[in-house]
Design a binder for these strands. Structure first.
Lengths: 201, 201
DNA sequence: GTGGTGTTTTCAGGTTCCTTTCAGGTTCGG
DNA sequence: CCGAACCTGAAAGGAACCTGAAAACACCAC
């Protein structure tokens, strides 16, 4: 899967069906790769529950080679695409790209937390219902935080995500942008964990 | 292919790429199955020309088994899905169903938004009831925007869809056309989201 | 071909506003 | 109470964007 990261995707990974179900339900991803045959809860059940609850995220399922019935059942359960194992990373990347592009017109992915809502598709942010203007970088940082609520995020990690990797930046840009987000979205949004990083909750 | 008719689909069939191209361009289908390796005009060229002209019909391509690069090229050219030959009819039917379901909601022949109406069939555009003359390229761009109201559209995406893919254009044509649309249709129609793209709302 | 018409692309100058840096202040842990 | 870590306002510099005008191109009628 490292290949996908190389292709510019940012990944989160759930090890069990139950975890995955909750992640997909609570957070907003651009797309989901669903491995049928997960422990604890069958992949298809995860998918069906999402669809029943109105979770519209594009789903690509991975199946064993040649199991037609599984694929068909998956597509009928609301999957948008599939690929067979063993898989071919560039192919998956291309299909994800197509899925995301096709979906972003229909399914507006909205993350909401603590009075802040973030609509990735339109790039709009509101605080307590009021629209807030953010620049591209601010938006990117906020998105990163919103995807990792409650986690401590080291400055280095933010730097890596906001700038090209290995850009060992001797500056305080991160601090500046945290400051901007606080001013625009409320001082209590982001907590400083001194010498470890920041946390949003 | 009889199996598809049995499954409730209504079919039209073009024998050559040139025929297929014209059919897809002039008529409105729910979906297209595109066999790569057609005579007269390569299937991928058909697809690219459609996409360059703003034809948004969902396309499923058929490729020979195992030709990864062909599939990937197809998906990047704007295909929505693929299947390998020899194909399995119930699978194709299921995937077509999924494609059509996903695409529907886009498929009206007149789009109207914010005082602008666009008749896809005739290519006529009005602003506040008054007809507006648009050139071919302006129309393509407007169509693309109208299909994606409220979404941020990166410049790169516009370039890809207004020109055949892989045409890495080092110019400001997109900016110029955005400017023209604004002059003809109102400056507030398209919002610039600096360093992310444009948005119509 | 030739000329005429309209469209597309390029170019250059101007404008906007985002990013980064810097400097001085504040907070916190030890 | 000292130093490191962090905060934040202001300002320079630059990237991204806009737009008018002209050149290049395509198309059509003759």
């Amino acid at each position: 899967m490292d290949g996908l990261a190389t292709a510019g995707f940012v990944l989160d990974w759930a090890q069990t069906g139950a975890d995955g179900y909750l992640m997909g339900k609570d957070q907003s991803f651009d797309a989901v790769i669903l491995d049928l045959g997960l422990p604890e809860m069958a992949g298809l059940d995860v998918l069906k529950r999402w669809r029943a609850e109105g979770v519209l995220v594009p789903v690509l399922i991975l199946t064993a080679r040649g199991s037609w019935s599984e694929k068909i059942e998956g597509l009928n359960a609301g999957a948008d695409d599939y690929s067979t194992k063993p898989f071919h990373v560039p192919e998956i990347a291309a299909r994800l790209k197509a899925l995301i592009r096709r979906a972003s017109g229909l399914a507006t992915s909205i993350i909401s937390h603590g009075g802040i809502t973030l609509d990735l598709g339109s790039g709009r942010v509101t605080r307590a219902g009021e629209p807030v203007e953010l620049t591209a970088r601010e938006l990117r940082m906020l998105t990163y935080f919103m995807h990792r609520i409650g986690r401590i995020i080291p400055q280095a990690e933010l730097t890596e995500h906001l700038y090209a990797l290995d850009d060992t930046r001797e500056s305080n840009t991160i601090e500046v942008y945290v400051s901007r987000l606080r001013r625009k979205l409320g001082a209590r949004l982001i907590t400083t964990v001194r010498s470890l990083g920041y946390r949003m909750d």
